[in-house]
């Protein structure tokens, strides 16, 4: 789970300055409608999602892709936070949702790894116990990442965290890090893995994945900031996400999660359709779509439709 996001809940008071960070929690209350039905050849499905725009966007993409192939889709988007959405799925309120593999695994009591394959394998095992299955995960992941300005990346000649740690002048950088970084193994621990000494860093305290830190990075108040990897600000300000080459962050690839009950009776093309969607969705693409939704205020339906048609998926 993107724990900085959760810990930065305090910054929820900052709703106004938040230019729509990546997934937040909250949304409408759980649906009370009856369980969905599935079956051989029956092309009718109920899709749910959490409340934040990225989850809704992915769910809408799944829905339109399925509709293009003759499915009838009922949407229950924006149900609420994970601890509302997950039990609803398990109890059959709906059949399919998009999820982040690391966060979901953590939620189910497992331990997320930096390697997506490993995380996915463990997740599949955990899901099996509650009657769910994850289809193929997308390359796109929304995880905490260290981000620099384009000019910093080119001046120092870096594209990965390891290169940054070795770069000359790295000690002069000002870091925009959240207050909890010091005690968080995924933040200060990750930096130590790359060879930084947390105590020696020149730090300005900003909540992660938040608009103020993105603004501060753009304006040059800080040089490295912790953002979420699909945060619209990254594209808006043309930032460079430094590759987490040591895989210090848990994988947060997005995958469709489906009820086994439905999957068992699903038409043959069901998994193919969704796997094709996942294969085409990488982090940069997801970030761009996020900008269109959160910054340009385009409707989720339009953004989903245009991306699907651009990729020949509808």
């Amino acid at each position: 789970m993107r724990m900085h996001r959760k810990l930065a809940l305090g910054a929820a008071t900052l709703a106004l300055v938040l230019s729509a960070c990546a997934p937040g929690e909250g949304g409408s209350s759980p649906s009370a409608s009856a369980g969905a039905t599935g079956g051989e050849g029956e092309r009718s499905i109920v899709i749910g999602s959490a409340g934040f725009y990225e989850a809704q966007l992915m769910a809408e993409i799944y829905a339109q892709a399925l509709e293009a192939n003759g499915y009838t889709v009922e949407r229950k988007l924006g149900i609420g936070p994970r601890d509302t959405v997950q039990p609803a799925l398990e109890s059959g309120d709906f059949d399919l949702e998009p999820e982040y593999i690391g966060s979901l695994l953590t939620y189910l009591g497992g331990e997320a790894a930096g390697d997506p394959e490993e995380t996915f394998t463990n997740l599949q095992a955990a899901l099996d116990e509650v009657g769910l299955t994850a289809l193929d995960y997308a390359p796109a992941q929304d995880q905490n990442a260290f981000v620099v300005r384009q000019e910093t990346a080119s001046e120092l000649g870096v594209s990965t965290m390891s290169e940054l740690a070795d770069a000359e002048g790295a000690s002069d950088l000002v870091w925009g890090l959240p207050p909890e970084c010091e005690t968080n193994v995924l933040c200060s621990g990750a930096l130590e893995q790359y060879g930084f000494t947390y105590g020696d860093l020149n730090i300005e305290q900003y909540a992660a994945c938040d608009a103020p830190v993105a603004q501060a990075l753009n304006d040059g108040v800080v040089d490295v900031a912790e953002l979420c990897s699909t945060q619209p600000d990254i594209e808006r300000f043309n930032f460079v996400v430094l590759e987490d080459d040591l895989q210090t962050q848990p994988s947060e690839n997005i995958a469709p999660i489906v009820r086994n009950e439905w999957l068992d009776a699903a038409p043959a093309d069901f998994a193919e359709i969704l796997n094709a969607v996942s294969a085409a969705m990488d982090t940069e693409t997801l970030t761009s779509l996020g900008v269109r939704v959160a910054v340009d205020q385009e409707s989720i339906e339009d953004v989903a439709a245009s991306w699907l048609s651009d990729n020949g998926l509808n």
Partner: peptide, 24 residues
């Protein structure tokens, strides 16, 4: 404190971030 100044806001912002509600 939201934009990284010092002052008493640090107790509140940092406290929330680290779930130290006594400090908040």
């Amino acid at each position: 404190a939201v934009v990284a100044t010092g002052g008493l806001g640090r107790y509140i912002i940092d406290g929330i971030a680290q779930r130290r509600f006594d400090e908040v």
